[in-house]
Amino acid sequence: MTTLVSQLLAGDRRALARLLSAIEDETPQAQEALAALYPHTGRAALIGVTGAPGTGKSSLVSALARFYRARGQTVGIIAVDPTSPFSGGAILGDRIRMVDLAGDPGIFIRSMATRGSLGGLARATADAIRALDAAGYDIILIETVGAGQSEVDIAYEAQTTLVVEAPGLGDDVQAIKAGILEIADILVVNKSDRPDALNTVRTLQAMLDLGAERPPRRWHHGQLLPAAARPAEARPDGWQTPIIQTIATDGTGVAELAAAIDRHRDYLQRSGQLADRERTRLEAELAHRLRDALLDRLLQQIDPGGLQALIARLVRRELDPASAVDYLLSNR
């Protein structure tokens, strides 16, 4: 693995591809390599792209990647598609919309299956981002699965989150429900050559106006909390979520979108939120990994036969799940 690390740092794309597989398969070698690469991470700009299926996320990612390449930046892309809950297999089809990126050594595209994760990303996405970051890509675009209303993990992993809408999906009540629209740093109305695009823009604008009074927010344990605990003077004016109209397939609006992304990154840096978000994210990741490790360790200590007997008691309604946990923790 140490040769893999040095190859990756030297720009070997095959080494990167192999490390990404090891990360997805959660091998001990991957953990070792990630530990060695960690000091080389934290440099890339992380841009998340989410939205309902069919809104044009992949085409938009492709258009943005071309824009950044023209600007002289290198681009890593992680495109996530769902794993079948029945077979464990997956069809990863996001490359279909990215064919015009082929042949450019400044671009690296990797498709990932969710492998049972429900938040719109794969379990291994955070580590995959680190691998691309360490490999030196300037911009990392992360495309989620076609998201509905609660796949909001991307807001953790990305520094700037784009929520992509398309005309003709949902009404204004959908727009004010909690969830995916709330995580948008930038709202994109793609397919804006459709006749009802302006209605979609107006609906989203109305939704944003309704929320205009809300205080600045921060991430805490997976929830957005009002940032009242922070001294008010340390924070400049809150970020105003812009709505950008695009036609990803012909590039219309892509320069404006990239400019909005630059403005957002600049805002994050000036306001100290970039460092703030990173700290909160790492805190959450630590808690998450600790929970997984403790669970694994605990399950090794529990007699499997006893566990099965306990599950049988749950099924017979003799014991409730919360009491079963108390029992397991006190009788090891």
Binding site: G89, A90, G93, V99, S111
Partner: peptide, 12 residues
């Protein structure tokens, strides 16, 4: 192949 539990990258 998906139904057999494999991850299939389909490029079009």
């Amino acid at each position: 192949l998906r139904d057999a539990g494999m991850e299939v990258i389909y490029t079009g």
